[in-house]
Design a protein around this nucleic acid. Structure first.
Length: 512
DNA sequence: TTCCGACAGTGGGGTCGCAAT
DNA sequence: ATTGCGACCCCACTATCGGAA
């Protein structure tokens, strides 16, 4: 198949609003794909590369290459070349990758170049990714979408399922079962603004600690232990403590879901930054493990002794978990019986925060494990802090925000009357706010930099954030975690904005 | 008819490892 | 030895479509 055909369909999908029509376009293409093209075409149309990331970013792609006149590249050509690019490592590899990318772009037409750049940066912006590719696959083969979706979650891979179903038809879906050693997409949680709101939605539910670490899925099959992250990267070798812990447990064959965290000498949980650094260390694991030993804390069991627990109610899965995993290695929890039990839920949240953790997750006791989905049956609640900060600059947006000032640079007052930048945010704005702030900041602009404008520090904005973290990027030495706009405060002057001093005082643990 | 679940898009900061300087 | 880039951790929020209620 010619790559140009994919580029064309992708453009058509991008130009279509109705999801049903996008699905139909995908299905039509899938039906016509040669078997050999399938493992390439499916990920491309889901906006990804079959090779995963190739070590190519904006820097390599910044080069302007004159496009080819006529489309000649097949999807196989593209795949072969990209594989070669990904294989380049060692000294000189960056130059080599850049050369190979230039060569590839030169062979592509303008439309093909645009699509290729989208694939390489992971920003195809066609309004259809994995979920619609699944719908399209179902439509192309006549299989029920829910069955295809489930197979993808269990396989942890869209193209594996696509290949099977396009070759052998819908019965092939039965081959995808929960298997020890094969990672499953983890279940995710929605946010709720309070414990009250969450309990009102869930009724009787478990309230569990939310730990600020790295999500892990642990598989043990006899002596073989495997460990996966949220995106199913295999990190077994980086955390030997987890393999040891898995072998201590009473069972031989199981899949557990949990979080990896670390504690300091006083038994307080270490910061996310420290845990992240530990889990990211893969060269000298022994030294890293000596400095920041980690502990697993499990909260769910997906499989025990060869029995698939995914469809069991959470209450039953937890019973299995408790049989297998001793209490210190399980997440702390309490169970509340609906709104009458709110005080217990609030007490548990308050206790959890006192012990230095992030918040709580409330889980419906009757819900199955919805692999890969952000189910409504898990609701996380974290305390939110707010500040009044001053806009120092704003960057031009991309995609649907093109032409709008989008990403705000945020400053707090310093003792000397100047403003110290604490970070940026593009979150929380409605379209109306984007329009308004583009105009207002335009009036306040003192200099246009191309990337955006710096402004007179006069506009006050209320910012919500989850906490402070250490920073080497910003002069104050700290930055806001997950900053987002709540509302503009035109009633406030910059002199009334919060100060760096009060901010640091509010989070003493960060600079201690 | 209205409501709400699921998706895609729009980017944030930190950390590590590696290649280039 | 230092710097810059890319991958991958953590993530919040809004707009939109289309099925559920």
């Amino acid at each position: 198949m010619l790559f140009a055909r994919l580029a064309h369909v992708s453009q058509e999908i991008a130009a279509t609003l109705a999801r049903s029509r996008k699905t139909a376009l995908l299905a039509e293409l899938f039906r016509g794909a040669e078997p050999a093209d399938v493992p390439i075409v499916i990920p491309y149309l889901a906006g990804r590369l079959p090779q995963g990331r190739l070590g190519i970013g904006w820097k390599v792609l910044a080069q302007q290459i004159p496009p080819a006149r006529e489309p000649t590249l097949t999807v196989q050509d593209i795949d072969t070349r990209l594989t070669a690019i990904g294989a380049a490592t060692g000294p000189g590899s960056q130059t080599e990758r850049k050369r190979l990318v230039a060569e590839l772009l030169a062979a592509a037409t303008e439309d093909e170049q645009r699509y290729l750049l989208g694939l390489l940066t992971g920003e195809v912006r066609q309004g259809a990714l994995d979920a619609l590719a699944v719908e399209g696959l179902a439509a192309a083969t006549g299989a029920p979408p829910a069955d295809v979706r489930r197979a993808v979650m269990l396989a942890g891979s869209l193209q594996t399922v696509a290949q099977a179903i396009l070759t052998d038809g819908p019965p092939a879906l039965e081959r995808f079962r929960l298997t020890l050693g094969r990672s499953v997409l983890p279940m995710l949680a929605h946010s709720a603004s309070s414990v009250t709101e969450a309990v009102a939605k869930l009724g009787t539910c478990a309230v569990e600690e939310k730990l600020d670490g790295i999500r892990v899925q642990l598989h043990r099959d006899g002596d073989d232990v495997r460990l996966y992250t949220r995106t199913l990267d295999d990190i077994t070798d980086r955390l030997p403590e987890l393999t040891a812990a898995a072998r201590e447990l009473a069972g031989e064959r199981f899949i557990l879901d949990g979080e990896v965290i670390a504690f300091d000498e006083d038994g307080r949980p270490r910061s996310f930054q420290e845990i992240s650094g530990r889990v990211g260390s893969r060269v000298d694991v022994a030294t890293a493990a000596g400095q920041v030993p980690v502990s697993p804390v499990f909260f769910d069991a997906l499989s025990v002794d060869g029995q698939d627990l995914l469809d069991l109610p959470f209450a039953d899965r937890h019973t299995e978990l408790a049989r297998l995993v001793p209490e210190p290695m399980r997440v702390r929890r309490t169970v509340v019986n609906g709104p009458d039990d709110l005080p217990e839920a609030e007490r548990f949240l308050s206790d959890t925060l006192t012990r230095g953790h992030e918040g709580v997750v409330l889980k419906a006791l009757d819900a199955p494990y919805s692999a890969g989905r952000r189910g409504a049956s898990w609701l996380k609640v974290k305390p939110v802090h707010t500040l009044d900060l001053v806009v120092l600059a704003a960057e031009w947006g991309h995609g649907r925000r093109t032409g709008k000032l989008s990403n705000l640079h945020l400053g707090a007052r310093s003792a000397d009357g100047s403003f110290a930048m604490l970070g940026k945010t593009f979150k929380g704005m409605t379209d109306a706010m984007l329009t308004w702030q583009t105009e207002r900041l335009g009036e306040l602009a003192v200099e246009d930099h191309g990337w955006g404008v710096t402004v007179r520090p006069e506009l006050v904005v209320e910012i919500a954030y989850d906490g402070l973290q250490r920073s080497t990027r910003y002069a104050a030495g700290v930055t806001l975690r997950f900053a987002r706009v709540v509302r503009y405060r035109e009633d406030k002057s910059p002199a009334e904005a919060d100060t760096v001093e009060t901010l640091l005082a509010a989070h003493p643990e960060v600079t201690r």
